[in-house]
Design a protein around this nucleic acid. Structure first.
Length: 797
DNA sequence: ATATTGCATGATTGG
DNA sequence: CAATCATGCAATATA
């Protein structure tokens, strides 16, 4: 039997306070170094780790172990030795954390909070230093041991240091963290676990209730705070963007897309700012809300043409790969599971190639994911980590001048109360898109102007009427002024427009009798109308003669016959032969269609092109089309659909046939086996000649700009152009390789119009434009065309 | 014929 | 100037 011991002892369980016990037990360590006295009952509960369950069940602060889901009472002194706080938020019970640490599976996850610096009964295992020195791994995948190059890999050192410094504060923070924490509590709140890194945390009064109770919205705010502060704490050189981050709690802080250095894991040296994750807080909130997890932004990367291409390889910034992805020693790498924001899990091969005594890290097999997200070159993929668990999350952001994802109802459709006051949306930097509604797709924000054009137009047609889009349009209208505007397209400027905008512009017509006022906004000219623009009828511009003279053709809505129009004609949305005021002989549907060889060529080319581009899915539509011109027009109108099937082609011009003499195909090989600068082969001479022409044209433009005598320039131009004409080039051609959105390429095409055309059997340089520009018929990736130009330069030099 | 894979090259960029 | 990275090339695999 136990003897009831009486004495001066008082059970240090505040809810007990017993002064008598059959046996006194020792409890938690006191600051004095002694151990708390507990009565037998309380002490037994403490020994069996049931203290909090027994005495604090009704109190706040309960969390779940991220692994075993055991409930843990955080912030209670009695539980502090059995709770492990992870670097990235979340908690784990000591059992789980120790077992993982001992197995070496996930050591990096458990960089412990200072509360564990106090050595425990041995069960809690590693000291902080031990953890911090451990090569961390954030991932659940088995590790491949790092090689020598990875020895410096200490992604969490920043965290570890900070944790040490904030020892007491940390504890206090958790004490105040009053997660009422039902199991369903969004673990976004876990962000508070890292509040110690916040400067504001120096003020010990942290009203956890307020922060937590704010729910989703408050979470964003607090998270904003978190990331800002983490960033500034870690950054050796605080960036302007970070410094310029508005204070938390403002509406802008929730939405501004400000590059923040990742909160940890800088790897060797600094991560370049272009890889800093630029989430808005609401994006984070939306992602985390969707997944019910805490999101730690790691890095992001703007997709190159190669990344987005069909090759399926996403080049990873080396520093990011080494800092945030598991270390790999074999070139073959490891499978890496990544979850997208919709919860779909993808497995990529994370590997590297030896490269100049270094490594080049790539994710292989990303094509399905990229296509699933409808990403193109210029869009951005983001990588984040989920806490708890360390799972990788891959997000996406379309290349867009507006960076407001909120209105898109991202993923979980979280409502956002202040989308109308997005500081970012107000901060427009591009005017190429004056009035296109924002778009979204399957929960992802839709791009508004990706470099390679694409599906924006279609999406706008689909979603154009939704309230969010209207809201955004409203905002943009406000930005540009109260009146309705249409970007005034000069032919060259139109080349630079992303195809989405270009197409949108082509379709817009001033309303009847509208007299525009031209205004200049950020160096772009806009026609300003009192009335909103209307949709007009698409026409086709054909450069059908060696002189380069253009013709415009439009089709009758009744008989579908094509009628020649003045090049500057603007047709209303509905137009019939009877409206053909320009040709009295063909102002009736009964009049025969004008026969023109070039048009037939266009027709044929359009069919061929479309066949290649559209593929089987479009076959039915092809069959219904009355003519090749329609096909052509459709191809242009449906350019977005075409783009979807080919994203940023970067391989060697699969469209081209053997013997293709276009500017792309004739380029000499780069790299090994390339032609020498002195090479005089046909290919090199042609490229040199074209380059010369291009340079002369540039020079001419420069001179014109400088206001020098135009005559001299013309003389030069003639000198440059004449020899080409003399080389037996033939009728107009369809250059499937010209990038209509690349100014230089467009210039080159323009120069070659009268020369190269003779070579081609196709006969017509065709384009579809209401803006009057000569537009190529395809959307060869801009990068490709740029490459072409640069290749020319290289050879010529 | 086309796609995939591994590597090489060279432009760009940061220190 | 060196590191990084986008992309081209060629060998190989596959359809």
């Amino acid at each position: 039997m136990f003897e009831v011991k009486m004495g001066s002892k008082v059970c240090m369980n505040a809810s007990c306070g017993s002064t008598s016990s059959v046996e006194w037990k020792k409890g938690w360590p006191l600051r004095s170094g002694a151990l708390a006295d507990l009565c037998f009952r309380c002490g037994s509960a403490y020994e069996t780790s049931r203290f909090c369950e027994t005495f604090h069940m009704e109190q706040s602060g309960w969390r779940e172990c991220y692994l075993c889901n055991k409930r843990l009472h955080c912030g209670c002194i009695a539980s502090k030795l059995v709770v492990e706080f992870m670097d990235y938020g979340g908690v784990g019970c000591s059992t789980c954390t120790n077992s993982h640490s001992k197995r070496g599976e996930n050591p990096g996850v458990f960089s412990r909070l200072p509360m564990n610096m106090q050595q425990t009964n041995g069960e809690s295992g590693m000291s902080i230093d031990g953890v911090v020195r451990t090569e961390a791994n954030l991932f659940s995948q088995p590790l491949v041991s790092g090689d020598d190059k990875r020895e410096e890999f200490t992604p969490h050192r920043g965290f570890g240091n900070l944790m040490k410094q904030d020892n007491n504060v940390t504890t206090a923070g958790y004490t105040h963290e009053s997660s009422s924490s039902s199991p369903a509590q969004p673990s976004l709140n876990m962000a508070l676990a890292t509040l110690p890194y916040s400067p504001s945390f120096a003020t010990p009064v942290v009203d956890g209730n307020k922060l937590m109770g704010a729910g989703g919205g408050g979470g964003a705010s607090s998270q904003s705070h978190l990331f800002q502060c983490s960033a500034s704490s870690i950054l050796q050189k605080p960036s302007k963007s970070v410094l310029g981050t508005p204070p938390p709690g403002t509406s802008k802080s929730a939405q501004a897309r400000i590059g923040r250095p990742p909160v940890e894991g800088r790897g060797k040296g600094h991560l370049l700012p272009r890889y800093w994750p630029k989430y808005t807080d609401k994006e984070l909130q939306q992602i985390s809300g969707n997944l019910n997890l805490n999101i730690v932004p790691l890095f992001e990367k703007t997709l190159s043409a190669s990344d987005a291409g069909r090759i399926g390889r996403l080049v990873l910034p080396k520093a990011c790969a080494e800092a945030y992805f598991p270390p790999i020693s074999q070139s073959e790498g490891i499978p890496l599971k990544v979850q997208d924001v919709r919860g779909k899990e993808w497995t990529f091969q994370f590997r590297f190639w030896p490269n100049n005594n270094s490594r080049m890290y790539v994710l292989e097999g990303v094509t399905p994911c990229i296509q699933s997200m409808r990403l193109q070159a210029g869009d951005t993929v983001t990588f984040s980590r989920v806490d708890p668990g360390g799972k990788l999350i891959m997000g996406a952001r379309k290349a867009t001048y507006t960076v407001d994802m909120q209105g898109c109802g991202f993923a979980n459709g979280a409502s956002n109360e202040d989308t109308s006051s997005s500081g970012v949306t107000e901060n427009l930097t591009s005017i190429n898109a004056p009035s296109c509604p924002s778009q979204m797709l399957e929960g992802l924000p839709e791009h508004l102007g990706s470099p390679h054009g694409g599906n924006g137009l279609k999406k706008s047609e689909i979603n154009g009427g939704d309230d969010q889009s209207r809201g955004k349009e409203k905002k943009r209208t406000r930005t540009l002024g109260a009146k309705n505007k249409r970007l005034l397209l000069h032919s060259e400027e139109s080349m630079e427009l992303r195809v989405t905008w270009e197409e949108a512009q082509e379709l817009l017509r001033p309303s009847a009798n509208a007299k525009p006022t031209v205004v200049v906004i950020e160096e772009h000219e806009f026609e300003e109308f009192e009335e909103p623009p209307v949709f007009g009828k698409r026409t086709i511009v054909v450069t059908s003669r060696p002189s380069g003279e253009q013709e415009r053709w439009g089709s009758c809505d009744d008989c579908s016959k094509w009628r020649r129009l003045p090049v500057d004609a603007l047709l209303p949305a509905k137009w019939t032969c009877s409206d053909n005021v320009w040709d009295s002989s063909r102002c009736s549907c009964s009049a025969p269609e004008e026969s023109l060889k070039e048009l037939e060529n266009v027709l044929r080319a359009g069919k061929e092109y479309k066949k290649k581009r559209i593929g089987v899915s479009q076959t039915a539509r092809n069959e219904q089309e009355p003519s090749g011109l329609d096909a052509l027009a459709s191809a242009a109108v449906l350019g977005d659909a075409l783009d979807e099937s080919e994203v940023a082609t970067t391989t060697r011009h699969p469209r081209h046939r053997v013997g293709c003499s276009c500017i792309v195909c004739i380029q000499p090989p780069s790299g090994k086996g390339r032609h020498k600068p002195t090479c005089g082969c046909t290919v090199c001479s042609t490229v040199k000649r074209r380059f010369k022409t291009l340079m002369m044209r540039r020079k001419k433009k420069q001179l014109e700009r400088d206001g020098t005598a135009a005559e001299a320039v013309d003389e030069e131009n003639k000198e440059g152009a004449e020899p080409e004409k003399n080389e037996g080039e033939k009728e107009g051609r369809i250059d499937l390789n010209s990038d209509p959105y690349n100014r230089e390429d467009a210039e080159a095409v323009a120069v070659e119009k009268g020369e190269e055309s003779k070579k081609s059997e196709e006969g017509v340089c065709w384009g579809v434009s209401q803006g009057g520009g000569v537009l190529g018929g395809t959307e060869v990736g801009g990068g490709e065309a740029e490459k072409t130009t640069s290749e020319e330069q290289k050879v010529a030099s």
